[in-house]
């Protein structure tokens, strides 16, 4: 797994995290360590770019769920872009797609 954090120019508190390679049970802790602090920037925005991610397992989904819950708590706009068909299917089945959609509407119906 390779992870880069880019600060988008147009807005100061907008970060884009690009992950390439594989996020699995071994790399998920590092993924979490990098991702979670970015969700705690009050009023900021975080874009997770998975365009170059060729594999993720359910541990990675778990990290994204934690990031989603944390961003709701900190009023940080969290979005995921660049899903490959396989990852999109994983998001669909587990219900993550629906959860992301709900938080973007502003419902914030997560359990925290």
């Amino acid at each position: 797994m390779n992870l880069s954090i880019e600060r988008e120019n147009q807005r100061i508190n907008t970060n884009r995290v690009v992950v390439s390679g594989e996020i699995d049970v071994f790399t998920a802790p590092e993924f979490k360590k990098n991702l979670l602090p970015l969700t705690e920037l009050n009023g900021g925005a975080l874009i997770l770019d998975l365009n170059k991610t060729n594999y993720m397992d359910s541990t990675a989904i778990g990290v994204i769920v934690a990031a989603l819950k944390s961003s709701v708590k900190h009023h940080c706009k969290f979005s995921v872009v660049g899903l490959t068909p396989r990852i999109e299917r994983l998001f669909e089945i587990t219900g993550l797609t629906e959860l992301i959609a709900r938080t973007q509407v502003g419902g914030g119906d997560t359990n925290e």
Binding site: V65, T94, G95, L96, E98, L99, R102, D109, T110, N111
Partner: peptide, 12 residues
């Protein structure tokens, strides 16, 4: 069959 994973959101 569709439904949210257990633990994702309360009140699913």
């Amino acid at each position: 069959a569709r439904g949210m994973s257990l633990g994702l959101a309360s009140g699913s």
